[in-house]
Amino acid sequence: MRTMLPRPSGPESLWTLFTAPIVWVAHFLISYLSVAIYCAKQERFSIGFDALRIAIGIATVFALVAILVSAWLAWRQWGFGAHDPPHDEPTRHDRTLFQGFATLLLSGLSFIAVIFVALPVLFMTECLR
């Protein structure tokens, strides 16, 4: 029964493990750097702070969708929860499952982290004067 579940078709490498954390890093840098630069050089920009908040909101939605896609791929690699950890047999099959499970957990962490990073712009309406 378990072996009849769809197996991942594409090539899974270690890189898929890093996708979600990399999205988190990129989102973090975009959010913090854009606000820091905007507030330091406010007079050079024609847009208001609200436009920046909306831009960060859009970036957040993109980041969350990317992480969800990564999580879905990891879930698929893990066999949609059909196998229980620990995947510690020295076989290719177990390695793949372990990697899928680890990727899924990292995606969860990154998802929460991206929300926490974006939360301040929901409440901050202006630069510090």
Binding site: P120, F123, L128
Partner: peptide, 27 residues
């Protein structure tokens, strides 16, 4: 574990951020 603590942290963070605008210096 993860679900409960994430929810509590999210609640506390939201509350702290909600308080923050009033605590920032105004001129």
């Amino acid at each position: 574990g993860p679900v409960f603590s994430s929810a509590v942290l999210l609640g506390l963070l939201t509350y702290a951020l909600w308080l923050m605008p009033a605590l920032r210096p105004t001129t």
